[in-house]
Amino acid sequence: MKKLTILLIVLILLSIVLAGCTNSAQKTPEAEKAEKAPTAETSDELKWPDGKTIQIVVPFKAGGDTDFHARTYAKYMEKILGAPIVIVNVDGGNGSVGSIQVRDAKPDGYTALFFHDSMLMNKVVGVTDFAHEAFDVCATGIMDNSYIIAVNSKSKYKTLDDLIKDAKENPGKIKYASSVGGYTYYVGRKLEELTGADFNIVDAGGGADRNAALLAQKIDTNVNPYGVMKPYIDSGDFRVLAVFSEKRSSLFPDVPTAKELGYDIIAHRAYFLAFPKGTDQRIIEKVANAMEEVSKKPEYAEDIKKAYCVEPAYMNTADTKAYLDSALKEFEDAKDMILGK
């Protein structure tokens, strides 16, 4: 019995060590050596992915929304591309550490980055000195346009008008939760600018922390994607005042858009895939097509609806580029506002 236990432990240990070895063997050449050898294939036929592992870097920890969307995409893309896809989490600097790792990787199509609008925000606030132009952008898999503004059900605000009116009458008293330089901070400042309301914009942590703060009425209002607040909306603890999208969502059609209430503010976040600069255009096209195929799968739609209450929204390479260009311009124009000046 004793020997068996030892044997078992040794075996497991050994397997862990071995697993570690194979893993690092895959990573080091791509991740560490930043040599930019032009590897664009000269032959006419594209030999990619050739069954080799494709590494998608998620520049955040495992378990968040970006990680979820990348993994869900990977799950379906593996089958279409016929190659294994591994997700590598490289957290740090609000996504900039992972971005740099991919930017400096070999442009051979085996390393890609899955990121969202924060890449642009990082440039605007000065965390990095580059945005999507440093990459070969592939396509957008998801466009989260489910940003809603909500209050505690016990609060006196029944409509968005109530809230704005109160914020005008009591300047600096209504607590709007957001982190400086974050996307929802920008939305809050835009709302102020548009309506002349004056919020007290306070930092109350990430999505889950803000839910708790709103539940305890330590803050008055909160903007976040619908999925983040969904459990509390379903339980009746939160009241949704509006969604900042072009048209009502089919997943929560009862919620009016801010636009139809007379506040023309649109908020969204695109989750896109990008390759290092210099990657073969045919690879990018192939992956973009695979992403389009995934976005049409009903199982996929079901997965993302269940987890984050969003709908698939595919944008091809050209559209994604155009979207990112205009979003970057929008953020840059509003730089002072975003920096809280």
Partner: peptide
């Protein structure tokens, strides 16, 4: 946080319900 990720991935969002 990892556990939460594991639950979310399975379509379960912990919360009041």
């Amino acid at each position: 946080a990892m556990l939460l990720g594991g639950l979310t991935m399975q379509g379960i969002s912990p919360g009041p319900l």
